[in-house]
């Protein structure tokens, strides 16, 4: 009996000891959400009515998703009139629904929601709207227009177009160039959109995707897919890899193979990829951004909507229904502009 009591104490002490060695937070916060201030928004930034915002997103099991949450929290901290309630990190729709229900009970003014599954969260988002709460839908769309006031989206199709156009420019005049594509999870609509845009842009300059493999957004799967691709294609001119998180594995496979005859374009826009681009010594020459600031933008829009302010620089007095963010190509020339908002994977 006393032995088990001792075990308990021991367990408690070791937990405390462990906590003491996990203090690596400051470094992670450095890069989160210090976006260049939008000059036009300055007047809107003046403190107004107190706004309580609830935020919920899927599990941060991917660099981009982790960055979404970090940037959102950092953005909310900038405003003295915003109180953020975070319920981050679940891939269980049942749990995410209850988080939104909790926000409704707490009578928040707005909810910024990146649903694990847009369709599955639609009923509870609609319920929140009916309760008079402003819902901002981020990244994965609901399937009802009544479920959100405003939707902030990335541009998956545009990512493919940007990547394809960049590769076309670089391979100008090379008619028999071999282009390869390393996609993300193939069954997701977002992957299909990216691939479609890529194919269309390449077709414009007479190129096509000669080799295509799919990974699963993880480092391990990226390494596997790239290794297979390099085996299958003895000579390649350009590779587009959809996702910079899986890109860590892709670059490892390329390094192991010793191949150097091609250049690589990334996707999503992680900070380490941008640093590689900046160094100029890597095979990575560019990446296409899928903004990880969507949640942060959701916070700003939620605040404007609740305080009944207009979006700066628009004549229209209402905040738009849909905001689709651009998918720019980052190269050595403009990398400094994007590095501050890039995410650490």
């Amino acid at each position: 009996m006393s032995r088990s009591a001792r075990t308990l104490v021991l367990a408690g002490v070791s937990v405390l000891a462990l906590t003491a060695c996990t203090g690596n937070t400051p470094k992670a916060e450095e890069n989160a959400g210090n976006a260049p201030a939008n000059q036009a928004a300055v007047k809107n930034d003046e403190p107004g009515k107190k706004v309580k915002i609830g935020f919920s997103a899927p599990a941060a099991d991917h660099g981009w998703m982790g960055a979404i949450t970090k940037a959102t929290q950092a953005e909310a901290k900038k405003y003295s009139d915003v109180e953020l309630v975070v319920a981050e990190g679940t891939n269980d729709v049942n749990l995410q629904i209850s988080q939104v229900e909790t926000f409704i009970n707490q009578k928040v003014d707005a909810i910024v929601l990146l649903p694990f599954d847009g369709a599955a969260l639609t009923p509870v988002a609609t319920k929140a709207m009916e309760a008079g709460i402003t819902v901002i839908n981020v990244d994965r769309e609901f399937d009802s227009p009544f479920a959100a006031r405003t939707t902030v989206l990335g541009d998956n199709h545009g990512m493919g177009v940007s990547a394809g156009t960049y590769i076309c420019d670089q391979l100008k005049g090379k008619k028999d160039a071999v282009v390869a594509e390393i996609a993300g999870i193939d069954s997701l609509p977002l992957t299909q959109d990216r691939s479609k845009g890529f194919k269309e842009a390449l077709a414009d300059c007479g190129l096509k995707v000669n080799n295509r493999v799919a990974a699963e957004f993880t480092v391990e799967s990226g390494e596997k897919a790239a290794a297979n691709l390099l085996q299958a294609a003895p000579k390649i001119d350009a590779i587009w890899n959809h996702d910079d998180d899986q890109g860590v594995g892709v670059m490892a496979a390329i390094k192991n193979s010793g191949r150097k005859e091609f250049f690589v374009v990334g996707g999503a826009g992680s900070a380490n990829v941008m640093r590689d681009i900046k160094s100029g010594s890597s095979l990575l020459k560019a990446t296409v951004i899928y903004p990880s600031t969507q949640g942060a933008d959701g916070i700003r829009l939620a605040r404007l909507l609740v305080q009944k302010k207009a979006l700066g620089d628009l004549v229209e007095v209402e905040v738009p229904r849909t905001v689709q963010l651009y998918a720019p190509v980052v190269t050595k020339d403009n990398v400094d502009q994007y590095l501050p908002t890039a995410f650490e994977s």
Partner: peptide
Amino acid sequence: MLMARTTTGSSTHGQLY
């Protein structure tokens, strides 16, 4: 119950239950 709660059926339901 989950179908009623989410108005969907999905292969991702019930993860880690």
